[in-house]
Design a binder for these strands. Structure first.
Length: 575
RNA sequence: GCCAGCAUAGCUCAGUGGUAGAGCAGCUCAUUCGUAAUGAGCAGGUCCUCGGUUCGAAUCCGAGUGCUGGCUCCA
């Protein structure tokens, strides 16, 4: 059984699920049911609205069908025969899908039991070869993913060769739930979102803000060290600015409506670029001062449909770690390579090692000279190569204004997150008519690149919370050390220790509550504090602490100086 | 925005037409404790909002808001 590819087995499981749905609700019309990265789904249209109880029913029936070892039979048909077959069954979606199949391709159907589906295959020989199956959820899904087309009902499921593998997958889903940044965000008092303020608008609590501050400090220093300068720009700008930039033409659905200031309409910024461009335009520029690398932690507001908001990962107001690079054509290759190298350095600093690149090239409709597109894409390609990154190319997937590279990082649970984006822009330099005076004494159009490394601080924070399951590494932990006296008799000594740690810039707290040691330790553990220092009589007499670390548990007695040296080093290593 | 579901104390949840409950957290008191919960007491609620049905609504119906899982989109 294990020599059957997982994808084939899952695809077959989707057919069996459809067969079960057909037998339970004979009016069901079927769309498609492919396998996915970690399971499968099938889309249906029918009168009955599916619920969680129905999934159990369907699953039960599927198990029966699997037990009966129903053969999967392939038949090749002429287009006419296929049309007739699905027309007779009233399968209108299948007819539409059939029409999508290119003329020269063979049309095939697969039958298993009563159920016959338009399908290219391949499939397992019989349903007995489908391993452990589990239906997971039901959701709405537009036909062809188009919101103007009818909404279908989709059932998600998964299948594995063995019960053990299935269970491991279900356990992984559970683990992901435990790490959910929305749950940990409340538990650890990192941030909150309020109905009274508005959906998708984030309040950072003291602990979350402390982490953000540390991230920002690191980020700024890294940028200064790598040849960037910082900018601060306003949160709003006149409508004229957004007309010039083209945002009101191409991005208005992402922008909030204008506010009136002295009779002029102003818009809250969805992007920082027009402001950076005006800084560039504030005086004539020489080739001698290029490249300009200007960064800003710029807070932007974008309209997102209500249904897509999700904790910190998808919000309406967020701070981009934005930068714009304006340079000459001769510099572009080095600049791109440098941006990518810098990005990789930042990701490694935060403990992310597995990174994939996605290159998007010129679409049909595009602005900018074709030679510039070529050079831009070439420089992106070379940079990816130089970093030895695995890269997928999305031909024609770029924006109309320029090609881009996106990076996706893999977290501790193996999930991919889109973060970094490095994007050429051939549109705004034209629209704002920016230039530099070249060696030849005449005006030239510079290249402009937008880039965000972490993406947005909000999303990055959400990713970090889940990556570390709330147990931040020492350098990021809002509370690094907590001192716990074993009884009130040792409060004074605990205070001395805490004061000494604080003096050494260690973020330290004291737990002087009249609780048992066990109770205090439990509290400290639950708050994911990296180090707990337990102090009592023995420690007071020897000027030491008893250490308990988040990572290793009980570590025994230690001189305070040794502990300090250890954590100083750990902070430095950002481990 | 669309489909489906959910909304009860700060948190996790019970309560299905008849006076609103538990655990944890909080506060008070007692305990002075050696590595993941010391004990007792107290306090805490427009049962999301508005409207309707009913003698009576947390519970049934409608609308709205927010959230969850998806679709579309994306930092």
């Amino acid at each position: 059984m294990s020599d059957i590819p997982l994808a084939t087995m899952r695809h077959s499981a989707a057919h069996i699920m459809a067969a079960a749905v057909q037998s339970l609700w004979p009016d069901a019309k079927f769309d498609i049911g492919p396998d996915t990265e970690d399971g499968f789904y099938y889309d249906f249209d029918m009168e009955h609205r599916l619920n969680q109880e129905d999934l159990k029913k369907i699953e039960k029936l599927m198990l029966k069908m699997i037990g009966r070892k129903l053969p999967f039979e392939r038949h090749e048909l002429s287009r006419k025969e296929a049309e007739q077959l699905f027309a007779e069954k009233g399968q209108s979606y299948k007819l539409l899908r059939l029409a999508d199949i290119p003329e020269n391709e063979i049309v095939s159907v697969y039958s298993s039991g009563e159920f016959t589906d338009l399908c290219r295959g391949p499939h397992v020989q019989h349903s007995g070869q489908i391993g452990a199956v589990k239906l997971l959820s039901v959701a709405g899904s537009y036909f062809r993913g188009d919101e103007n087309l009818p909404m279908l009902q989709r059932i998600y499921g998964t299948a594995f060769h063995t019960k053990e593998e299935l269970q491991a997958h279900l356990d992984a889903i559970e683990e992901a739930k435990k790490r959910d940044h929305r749950k940990l965000g409340t538990e650890l008092e990192l941030y909150s979102i309020h109905e009274e303020i508005g959906p998708g608008l984030v309040c950072w609590h003291p602990k979350g803000a402390r982490i953000r501050h540390i991230i920002e400090n690191f980020w700024r220093q890294a940028h200064y060290d790598n040849g960037y300068e910082m900018l601060y720009t306003p949160h709003v700008g006149k409508s004229k600015l957004w007309e010039t930039s083209g945002h009101l033409d191409f991005y208005s659905e992402g922008m909030y409506s204008a506010m009136d200031i002295d009779g002029d309409p102003y818009y809250v910024k969805p992007m920082n670029c027009p402001f950076h461009i005006l800084v560039y335009k504030s005086r004539p520029r020489s080739y001698r001062e290029l490249p300009c690398r200007w960064a800003e932690l710029g807070t932007v507001y974008r309209y997102e449909k209500a249904g897509v908001l999700h904790g910190l990962l998808r919000v309406r107001g967020f701070t981009q770690d934005d930068a714009h690079i304006i340079c000459t054509p001769e510099q572009i290759e080095d600049e791109i390579q440098e941006v990518l190298r810098f990005s990789m350095y930042v990701w490694k600093s935060f403990g992310f090692k597995e990174i994939k690149a996605y290159l998007a090239t010129r679409p049909e409709k595009a602005v900018g000279e074709p030679e510039r597109w070529e050079q831009a894409i070439e420089s992106l390609r070379k940079a990816v190569q130089a970093e030895g990154l695995h890269c997928e190319v999305d031909e024609g997937g770029g924006a109309f204004y320029g090609p881009k590279i996106d990076l996706k990082i893999k977290d501790a649970l193996g999930r991919e997150w889109q973060t970094t984006t490095i994007q050429f822009d051939f549109n705004e330099p034209e629209r704002f008519d920016i230039s530099y005076i070249g060696k030849d004494g005449v005006k030239h159009r510079p290249y402009m690149v937008h880039r965000a490394l972490l993406g947005s601080l909000e999303r990055f924070f959400g990713i970090l919370i889940e990556h570390y399951a709330g147990a931040f590494p020492l350098w990021l932990a809002p509370e690094q050390v907590r001192v716990l006296p074993v009884s009130e008799k040792f409060n004074d000594y605990a205070q001395t220790i805490a004061a000494e740690l604080k003096e050494k810039q260690i973020r330290t707290s004291l737990d002087l509550a009249p609780d048992t040691v066990g109770g205090k330790i439990r509290r400290g553990r639950n708050q994911r504090i990296p180090y707990l220092c337990i102090v009592g009589e023995k420690e007071e007499q020897s000027g030491s602490i008893a250490l308990r670390s988040q990572k290793k548990g009980e570590e025994g007695m230690m001189q305070l100086d040794d502990f300090l040296a250890r954590i100083k080093q750990e902070i430095e290593e950002m481990a």
